[in-house]
Deep mutational scan, measured.
Amino acid sequence: MAAGGDHGSPDSYRSPLASRYASPEMCFVFSDRYKFRTWRQLWLWLAEAEQTLGLPITDEQIQEMKSNLENIDFKMAAEEEKRLRHDVMAHVHTFGHCCPKAAGIIHLGATSCYVGDNTDLIILRNALDLLLPKLARVISRLADFAKERASLPTLGFTHFQPAQLTTVGKRCCLWIQDLCMDLQNLKRVRDDLRFRGVKGTTGTQASFLQLFEGDDHKVEQLDKMVTEKAGFKRAFIITGQTYTRKVDIEVLSVLASLGASVHKICTDIRLLANLKEMEEPFEKQQIGSSAMPYKRNPMRSERCCSLARHLMTLVMDPLQTASVQWFERTLDDSANRRICLAEAFLTADTILNTLQNISEGLVVYPKVIERRIRQELPFMATENIIMAMVKAGGSRQDCHEKIRVLSQQAASVVKQEGGDNDLIERIQVDAYFSPIHSQLDHLLDPSSFTGRASQQVQRFLEEEVYPLLKPYESVMKVKAELCL
């Protein structure tokens, strides 16, 4: 049975990233139509530049190519590739079939990587351009969430054990800070992308030097003109047959890092959902379990974690691919890159769409948070109580021993009897502590235990987050809708 299948058929496997999760716009960027249309555009740009620099290419040939950029006979191309065992030459023939007058000058002087690699770089750039505003929107939604809850005390956790208090907004800023680093890295790697350009079979530009009869300047002009037509500021000066596969490492490393950030955020949300302090959106008709109707599973956060793990592992592909590119190139890269580049971007696209949807509907339960604080705060307040007693004339050592005994009794009630923490009640009825009984409410005010959390939130948002989001103001209103 021949390899390949009808990918629109229910009898043929289709990647869930495309069929179930990723956005239509990201799927289109990695589609065959987008790819092969870009090949034709690159052939047109090459012909236009070659004509401008004096090669015998007519206006009629150029116009014929322009008129057929979208006229792609995919069936013919597939048949040609089956016959020739070469995808680029299959599309040269297919393009030439609908451009008979231009057929002889299509791909003039070029090698397969002229269309293959340059198209990949265009796709990487455009895919990054799709991700950047999506990530900015996630940051914006979380920034709104953090600002609104900047002063809401909550129990902090280290080692997932109760620690000092923080605020809900401050905790959210930990998430935002990681995503801001990801946004900066995505922008950097996007701006650092260079075009492969017009380089020939081993990167020496020998074929173009021959076409222009040894004119170095025209060869350099050709490279520059096509690079500018493709919208790049610069091209690699040095290439082998391909652009260095280190570029793929750079791009997928940034995406993998984004995956790590999203995994951490969504894990926190899942843990908070278990504590009943916070939940992701839950639709009115949504079913959490087929057997347990009360369940409210954090399905979206779980999906993000599941896909983020996949995204983090994909960076190993370009690392290994770059390491086995012998001399000017081997074909070890080809099949692998067809999979890992598309999957990385479709996965990143999915987790950003999902995280935006989550961040637009996060639900906080202040009463649950308050109750958990009441359970733990008495123990945390013991040092403040000791200091207040010393100020009232008591002995630190005597007070410490009193607190120690009462704390152990209260802990026994919590752990052995399943009761509430009654340390404060014990202190309130103990005559030894009568000098500070009137101060206990103040000493137990949760806001006095959150330090500068709310001020940190305000400063972080104003100095770091809002300036970073400013270039994306025009796209901030787009909502994230999930079908599944």
Rank of each mutant, 00 (worst) to 15 (best):
N71A: 04
A103I: 02
E64N: 11
A392W: 08
A322M: 12
T166I: 10
F449I: 01
A47T: 07
K101Q: 07
M299V: 09
L17V: 09
E462F: 12
C173R: 05
L222T: 02
S474G: 12
E481P: 14
T58E: 08
G393D: 15
A308K: 06
Y21H: 03
V29S: 03
A308Q: 07
M26R: 02
E50S: 07
R396N: 15
N118S: 02
L124W: 11
G96I: 15
I287S: 01
T94L: 10
Q161A: 02
I436K: 03
H7C: 11
I373A: 11
A291H: 11
L155T: 04
I249R: 01
I403M: 11
L174P: 01
L53A: 05
H159R: 03
A410T: 08
S434K: 08
G109H: 13
V368F: 14
S454L: 08
E25T: 12
P293L: 11
E360P: 07
T244C: 10
G203N: 05
H7D: 08
L211Y: 11
G200W: 07
G8S: 13
D422N: 10
Q63T: 15
R14M: 14
Y432F: 12
L186C: 04
I424M: 12
Q375T: 05
Q409K: 02
E81K: 01
A431R: 15
D144I: 11
L84H: 09
A163T: 01
L55P: 11
M278S: 06
T202I: 09
V189M: 11
L307R: 01
L128D: 06
A77V: 06
P318N: 03
H217A: 14
W175I: 00
S140R: 11
R33F: 08
L17D: 12
Q456N: 12
L484P: 06
H437P: 04
K367V: 10
F74G: 06
R459C: 12
I62D: 01
T154R: 03
A388T: 10
T119P: 05
D223V: 03
C483Q: 15
P162Q: 09
D6H: 08
R404N: 12
Y13A: 12
P24M: 12
K218T: 08
Q455T: 11
G104M: 08
S15I: 12
S434R: 10
D223G: 06
L482D: 09
V457K: 01
I123W: 07
G393N: 12
T201E: 00
K233L: 10
D87H: 13
S306I: 08
D268T: 13
M312N: 08
L121R: 04
P467I: 15
L319T: 00
K477V: 10
I436D: 03
F30M: 03
E370D: 03
A344H: 07
S67D: 10
R338I: 10
S67P: 05
T94A: 09
A78S: 11
Q439P: 04
T347G: 10
W175A: 01
I287A: 07
G156F: 02
V413D: 09
A47P: 13
A150H: 05
F236C: 02
Y13M: 06
R188H: 12
A3E: 00
G240E: 06
E425L: 07
F327V: 05
R329D: 04
D398W: 06
M225F: 10
E376F: 09
H7Q: 13
S12P: 00
W175N: 13
M181N: 12
F36E: 10
K367I: 00
V465L: 00
R303T: 00
A256I: 13
K147R: 07
H217N: 13
M312I: 13
C172P: 14
V390S: 01
A143C: 09
L46W: 05
N274T: 09
F95P: 03
Q286I: 02
R396A: 05
T321G: 04
G214A: 03
F30T: 10
I238K: 12
A260V: 02
R396M: 10
A273D: 15
A411K: 10
L124S: 05
K276G: 04
K233M: 14
D420Q: 06
V475L: 14
I237D: 02
G4H: 11
V324S: 01
Q375C: 13
Y432K: 14
E328W: 06
S257L: 13
E250I: 10
R338N: 06
I373N: 15
E213I: 11
C172G: 13
A431K: 00
L331A: 15
N68H: 02
D216N: 08
Q164F: 07
T450N: 10
L252F: 12
C27L: 10
S323H: 08
I403G: 08
Q177K: 12
L42W: 03
D144V: 10
E463W: 11
T204F: 08
R338P: 01
D317G: 08
L155M: 05
Q408W: 05
D73R: 02
E343R: 10
S323Q: 12
E80D: 11
I269A: 05
D144L: 10
T354W: 02
L42M: 00
S257K: 05
I139R: 02
S334D: 05
L406Q: 08
A47Y: 04
F212H: 05
L183Q: 02
D398I: 09
E417N: 15
H107G: 05
M278N: 12
L130A: 00
E60H: 04
P318W: 05
E462W: 12
V88I: 00
L311G: 07
Q375F: 13
G156K: 06
Y294H: 02
D248G: 13
V198R: 05
D422Q: 12
T382H: 10
A49L: 05
K477W: 10
V198I: 12
K147H: 06
G4E: 14
L461C: 11
M26N: 04
T313K: 14
L377S: 06
I122F: 14
S434I: 15
E79R: 15
M389T: 00
E343Y: 15
D216E: 02
K82S: 10
V414E: 00
S253P: 10
T330E: 01
E464I: 13
A335S: 08
Q241C: 04
P293T: 02
R452D: 01
Q61D: 02
T202D: 08
I351S: 04
S19Y: 01
P435D: 13
D422S: 00
F28S: 12
S334P: 10
R194C: 00
Q184R: 05
Q241S: 02
I269R: 01
D191I: 12
R329Q: 12
K187Q: 01
